[in-house]
Design a protein around this nucleic acid. Structure first.
Lengths: 245, 245
DNA sequence: TCAATGCGTATGTCCGGACAATCGAACTAC
DNA sequence: GTAGTTCGATTGTCCGGACATACGCATTGA
């Protein structure tokens, strides 16, 4: 029984995108079972009234997402494993919200400071030039979960404390028209200093999970540098990654 | 001054791949400076004697790698930031070797055991069925750096202790014809148990970086499940990730 | 002076076709 | 029975063209 697929040519949504979304929904929904063959591209194109390149583009986007696997001479199969989503540049806020945790944020510091050598190097600005500094405590179920310290270059956009407590930093940046492109991250661990321990209601020397990140927009500007510490009993980094073929 | 580009039509290497490699080399080498425009696709295609779809395919692969950015009505630009490589499914061994650290491996355990509930769930095999168990100590500059405990389903390939000490697990799997596809990872931290502390020559309770990973091949089979502990003073996870547009 | 309009340019989408490379299975020969 | 060969099926690569869409800039108008 072939899958119900159709495209709307009067829609402004690209045809290949309509198709890829329907296929993805069918996989998610279980209509396309893992391991099942998708049927050959030419026949699929004919059935939908599309050209083969358009169908290929739709399929390729799902291959890139890790949902499909192509085998020459065999066909295109639905991947058999539990693919969730590849690692993306997500904010802690979004992660928690997606998990239904209703995160709370408390802005501790929101000011302008002179860039230290480390911050200046990360943001590619002159040392001692002005940069925004934001320190936030992220809570989940009323308990401290992470301490986030971020630096932003000046003139990027207004850092409103109320907004920072209502949503995540990345969402604010996107809303300000900044196109996030890539980030360099470093994840490590260390014992908590006395100050860190107090912030997170841990004892001194307790193991902490740490993350440093510099984010770039599509022009190559560094738009954010952050140093985060997490309570490992309450947070860990979970993600899926794909092997680039 | 246009860039020197050419393709060899007698080569079995796909034309779009030849072009993308040359462009990538030009970016790496500095012939294409960050921010510079690549020149429009049609003119580029004409200059190389290629069709526009072929040129687009080459460019697209570099966009996917994060090296180029396309802007409608503007052109294609070289990304201005320091892109190294996106996060990939690399083994610790490869990482260390790439950093010129000449890693050493000591196989502590290489045997077959009955799968615990956790291992059975991760590998999707029956509880108490036979699985391979490998425990290795990874050293760098003669000092312990990580303790790696891995489980593999039976019948996948022969786990030779000598080979395990000479190279990484992923390299062995690839050599055995296994096509790695994706992995689910979890990175956290905790204090060392007495046993862990001794293995890594740390004191009990010292902060450790932990990683759990299940790797799948392109048929969806789980081919490996591992629990790793790292000394955070000697190792951290460094990677770059791209925003999927 | 400043905002709205129009235009050129570049990428985005889509088509229909052609041939090559590879996989798997059926078939054949020993 | 087994090994090698052939063959159909399917994806991979490539072509040349067409129109749509969005951005930046110059022109125009108030």
């Amino acid at each position: 029984m072939p899958l119900e697929l159709s495209v709307d040519r009067s829609s402004p949504v690209p045809l290949y995108f309509q198709l890829s979304q329907q296929l993805e929904a069918a996989i998610e929904h279980g209509a396309l079972t893992p391991g099942s063959l998708l049927g050959n591209e030419i026949e699929l194109a004919g059935r939908l009234g599309l050209s083969r390149p358009t169908v290929r583009q739709a399929i390729q986007s799902l291959v890139d997402k890790g949902l499909l696997v192509r085998r020459r001479g065999v066909g295109t199969q639905v991947v058999h494993s539990q693919v969730k989503r590849p690692l993306e540049l997500s904010s802690l806020y979004d992660d928690l919200e997606a998990a239904g945790q209703r995160p709370a944020t408390k802005v501790i510091v929101n000011t302008v400071v002179q860039a230290s050598a480390e911050v200046a190097a990360a943001l590619n600005v002159a040392e001692d030039s002005d940069v925004h500094r934001v320190e936030r405590l992220r809570l989940s179920h009323g308990e401290p979960m992470a301490y986030l310290c971020n630096y932003l270059p000046p003139g990027l956009f207004e850092l409103n404390t109320d907004q920072l407590e209502a949503t995540g930093l990345y969402r604010l940046m996107r809303a300000a028209g900044i196109t996030l492109h890539s980030a360099r991250q470093s994840i490590g661990a260390r014992g908590a200093t006395a100050e860190e321990a107090e912030r997170l209601t841990e004892r001194e020397g307790a193991p902490l999970l740490t993350m440093q990140r510099t984010t770039f927009d599509d022009t190559g500007r560094a738009v954010e540098f952050g140093t985060h510490t997490y309570r490992p009993t309450r947070y860990s980094f979970e993600f899926q990654l794909l092997v680039r073929p």
